[in-house]
Amino acid sequence: MAAATSDSTKSQAQLIYEQQRRRQRRFSTGVNVSYLVLLGILFLAFSGLQVNILGVHLKTIQLDWAFIVERTPFIFGGVGLTIILAILSISLACVLALLGALGRLSKFPPAYALATFYISLIRGTPLLLQIIFIFLGLPQLGITPGGMTAGVLALGINYGAYMTEIMRAGIQSVGVGQREAALAIGMVPSQIMRRIVLPQALKLVVPPIGNEFIAMLKDTALISVTGFVWEILWRAQKVGRANFRSLEALLVAAVFYWVITILFTMVQGRIEAYVARGDRTL
């Protein structure tokens, strides 16, 4: 549409539409400005400035910036490992969650009991305890997992228990009619599960699993207690302690965790859009 076109030539619908667009633009500009203000306040809190406003003495956190600049590359070295840990653990968790969900839906008593027992035991104990227990307990059985293996096992087993319920909900959400239809054309139960139910359930469980993955990215930090896995928090704690600069080192770690989370939240959005590409929209 040409810029010279006067309002009178536009239809009522166009005017309403343009008004809505203007409101949306104003809203998103407002949001972006607010983000900048919030970030500014956060930076100010770590600036080390001390001000007197009307007799009120305001202090901010003082940091050794030279130390931060010097040690950031070393802490950054843990970013890859943190992501790898989370990816390996979520893969294990998905497998366990699927097996757990099948167990929970099974008509075979031992399978149902095993799945229920697993969920109850794992959800009933803290993740930190499980990591230490697997790390120290398995060597007693003659199996000595490295810190990495122990960490992935513990995280995978823990998240698997929580995700079992997600998988179960996904499987149960596939209408019974789908199963009936598959049965009618002569599929056996395992075929129905693989070809009819799981593909449809998968689409529903992707968003909550993405959510679990983002939570897990930060729970990988707990693996640092074994001492053998040089992920972000381990590195930050070691350089922080040895130099009496824990606050600085932890702040660097926090920034990396936050940035990773923001990036993976964007990836999650893409994946969700991808699995929903066949959906009808208004």
């Binding site: 070393f74 590195r235 302690r241 040895a242 130099n243």
Partner: peptide, 9 residues
């Protein structure tokens, strides 16, 4: 490696 100057990174 929590202690300078004994052991640190």
């Amino acid at each position: 490696p929590n202690y300078a100057p004994q052991s640190f990174l």
